[in-house]
Write a protein that binds this DNA or RNA. Structure first.
Lengths: 290, 290
DNA sequence: CTTGCCTGTGAAGATCGTGTGATGATTTGC
DNA sequence: GCAAATCATCACACGATCTTCACAGGCAAG
């Protein structure tokens, strides 16, 4: 079984609250040319993806926690229908896109009835495959919704996105919406310094005007609440002339925290290059009319 | 504008719990041969369907309460993309299948990105159209199956999906349809915060316009009925600037445990009688004034 | 050490979001 | 068709939240 893992979701590429467009998919196919060109595009999109060259049991697919699976039925041979049916039965939430050679209407209808979400005929353009996977995933996302909420931990603080709150132990910090968005953004970029302008544009959605102190004010409010709830830790660090960095640092001298160095040199973050690349790519194909 | 209505189906398409395989769809096309043969098959399936020969405003489509729409972009002319985008924006839950003449990859990608769920190229077999509509509609459905039989329990309240009612003890809360859908949605989300926009789009089926207070009004009605039936508990918690969270919270303060209010997480009733008594500690916001 | 920006802090006013009651429109049941 | 139930909208009040400002203190370059 051939496997390759590329890309990985780091921080949320878009601002807090907005659904990330990064997906996790697998491609079950043996057509090396197709795989190669598709993989390249998936890389550029920042989607986590796997390439499989042989059928895998449903359990294995389950453990991959995929958003969608692209499959060439030719790889499956005569067992294709049975395999498809079992998989759809076991994972009704999984998006399944069949991408295979020439087929009859009856075959396509059968595949779709068995549970496939889409059927693309090869040869096809990889961009269309991606668009159809996106379409399938878009539909699929709604019911499951916030399933992908993994709590963010730092020091004593736990950030739960689906509750829009941060906790220390069992008590809530009682953050307002903006405060929560700020701590979520900072914590997601843990260790990195975020410039004021970037923080502002991600939280407020537009560029910061010179002299705006909103970010500072909200950092102060956050610090107050963090200080009250978790007095023995410091979380938000100021980098003069640059911005803020989130890192849990214990103030206890007895037990110095192993993970966190006492002081971290200023890191120069060049901003999110991937974001720009993605945006450009989206525009790439949209300029044409029927 | 040609219209024909067959069969009848009262249930709202997005209403939780409805799981009939009969769909309500509309076909926007002028190709009489295609329409004729498709209509015949839809009749045989017992699907309620409408044929439209000219573009209709999004509002009209909303009022049709469709499961899916099959559309030939050629009918829309140069406004096709704009129309598609607006419709997808207003009705994110609506399944949209584009069925149109020859197109480029870029066009298909654009349509899918704008929100179309599938794209079929004419000429095509009507059976495949139907299969693809089914596939789209299947994906759109609620996490079907098991939601039906198992009652949701929270505090003193028991929610029976198959009776479309909530009970405290033996007496019904006498909820209207929307009220019930709301409490079911909230309770199914356990302790998570649901944003107004999400609540609205899942209950009403289309995107909430700014300033719409419907969700608030129904939350108030629900609270009134819950308060009357179960005065010693609080269920719906407001998260300012975000939305609502459902969590049963006892108002009884007989225990000196002031820090952690007695709270019972929403749980699937597994027939275990001790479920209620076993009040597992659960994270709660300390401030009810939110 | 001094100067000029940058950041921390507190408070006041503006703005926005929510609770609430009421009213008219629409649908449902008889 | 009529009456009751249900739903959609509105206006108002109040409080939470956000923005803005002024001033004080801190940091770094010269």
């Amino acid at each position: 079984m051939t496997e390759s893992i590329t890309a990985s979701d780091v921080a949320a590429p878009s601002g807090p609250g907005s659904a990330s467009s990064a997906l996790r998919i697998a491609v079950l196919d043996r057509d090396s040319g197709f795989i190669q060109v598709l993989s390249k595009r998936l890389d550029r999109l920042g989607w986590e993806h796997r390439v499989l060259a042989s059928p895998v049991p449903a359990d294995t697919v389950v453990s991959m926690r995929l958003s969608a699976l692209v499959v060439d039925l030719a790889v499956l041979g005569p067992q294709a229908w049975e395999w498809l049916e079992r998989l759809c039965g076991a994972l009704p939430e999984l998006g399944i896109v069949v991408c295979t050679g020439p087929s009859t209407v009856a075959q396509r209808v059968r595949g779709l009835r068995l549970g496939a979400d889409d059927w693309i005929t090869k040869p096809c353009h990889p961009e269309e495959v991606i668009a159809r996977v996106q379409s399938v995933a878009r539909r699929r996302r709604r019911p499951s919704g916030r399933t992908e909420s993994k709590p963010l931990m730092a020091g004593e603080v736990e950030i739960l996105s689906d509750r829009f709150q941060a906790f220390v132990g069992e008590s809530s910090l009682d953050l307002t919406r903006r405060e929560f968005e700020l701590i979520e953004l900072l914590a997601a970029a843990e260790g990195r310094v975020l410039e004021r302008e970037e923080i502002y544009s991600r939280l407020w959605g537009y560029t910061m005007v010179r002299g705006d102190r909103s970010v500072d004010v909200f950092v102060r409010k956050l610090r107050q609440k963090l200080e009250k709830a978790s007095p023995r830790w410091r979380y938000i660090h100021t980098h003069f002339g640059i911005g803020y960095r989130f890192a849990a640092e214990s103030l206890d001298v007895d037990s110095p925290d192993v993970d966190v160095p006492a002081s971290v040199p200023v890191a120069w973050d060049t901003g999110d290059q991937g974001e720009l690349a993605r945006a450009r790519e989206d525009r790439e194909l949209t300029s044409d009319a029927l």
